[in-house]
Design a protein around this nucleic acid. Sequence first.
DNA 1: GGGTTTACATACAAGCATGTTTGTATGTAA
DNA 2: TTACATACAAACATGCTTGTATGTAAACCC
Lengths: 211, 211
Amino acid sequence: MVRKTKEDAAITRQRIIDAAREVFLVRGVSRTSMEQIAAQAGLTRGAIYWHFDSKTEILLALRERVFLPLIDRMDDTLLKAAEGAEDPLLNIERFLTETIQVLNDSSETRQTYEIMMIKCEYVDEFAEVLQQIANNCSNISLNIKRAYQRAQELDLLDTSCTPEEYAMDTYLFFSGLLHMWIKDPEGSERRQQTNNFIRAHVRLRRKTKTA
Amino acid sequence: MVRKTKEDAAITRQRIIDAAREVFLVRGVSRTSMEQIAAQAGLTRGAIYWHFDSKTEILLALRERVFLPLIDRMDDTLLKAAEGAEDPLLNIERFLTETIQVLNDSSETRQTYEIMMIKCEYVDEFAEVLQQIANNCSNISLNIKRAYQRAQELDLLDTSCTPEEYAMDTYLFFSGLLHMWIKDPEGSERRQQTNNFIRAHVRLRRKTKTA
DNA sequence: GGGTTTACATACAAGCATGTTTGTATGTAA
DNA sequence: TTACATACAAACATGCTTGTATGTAAACCC
């Protein structure tokens, strides 16, 4: 069987992406050849070159498929925190735990993060990917700041720092948390304590903590 | 001139490492060939293969040269914080600012970090490097915890969280800070505010903040 | 139902990058 | 001065990867 129906082709395309993810995770992006991806997908390079122009495009497709929904979700939770919520700090806590929960539940997401973090070199055509990530991060950072500003308006926020300082502190905590979580081996002790650390992080910002 | 004296050979070896760092930074580790390193160093591959068995060994040498002194220095500052200091929180703050200061002052350190963070794929023989880094980090984490415990004994520490929770929070902050600092472009606004954010981070932990 | 396009497989050519081998001139010690 | 080790350069052989070109059978469209 050679020529497939359109739905079959879409499945094939997805199989290529899945195969690439599996091989990338083991061999790294650079050391992975088109032939290896094809073999993992049970295809030949011809199929891959029909669906994608290059290995880079596969990686970009892999990334978009996982990152865009996650970014949307994070923005959504944070926007709620900044606008409607009666307890913005709780929403910030929810933003953190939910993101970790996605990593915990979805191996596709977890593996994709691992590839983007420690199995990929950001040079040449990937420099722009780094730029996109930076943009997403600064957007998250901005929304965190708004949430803290709202918490301040509602008099829920400790007064020793400014909302901007809290926001940067939380953003850096979040960034470090993702790296730790991805790099830690599966089922590590620290992974299980993650929610504790998130709660402690947010608790430290509540005004009533010493009252 | 072919055969050099021992000192000349040591200089050549260092030139190879320097050349590799420059090429790695631009092209990434995987895409860099021995030929390119040799050209950058003004040598041939023969010279490189005499000094190093493989590209991996160059990268390891590059890493050790920068990381080991830095790790030592961080351990040193944190140990002082955990044992002798009359203000452990100030020492934690110093640990953070000093590390950033090193990155700021030494382009060799900064570039090496950038290579290890976003221009290198941790697979196969590099999986163990990741393990070493994890060990260093958990050691740092442990020393931070000790410093916070001492701060608690001296009644300098806010009581809303445990020393362990503070330690993890600071470690994740530190991890995120390094990534932000390295990924941000040179002379970025956020880089300059780094010290402010560090001070805010530590200030939040002082007991007297609401007194 | 015939032509056209689609969705692949197969085959071919060319370019690195690697590792190794060989050559060689100099330092170095006896 | 001899004998060997050192510090490279240069040449060689090999394998891998990429890109492209061609083949082909089935799906799609009118």
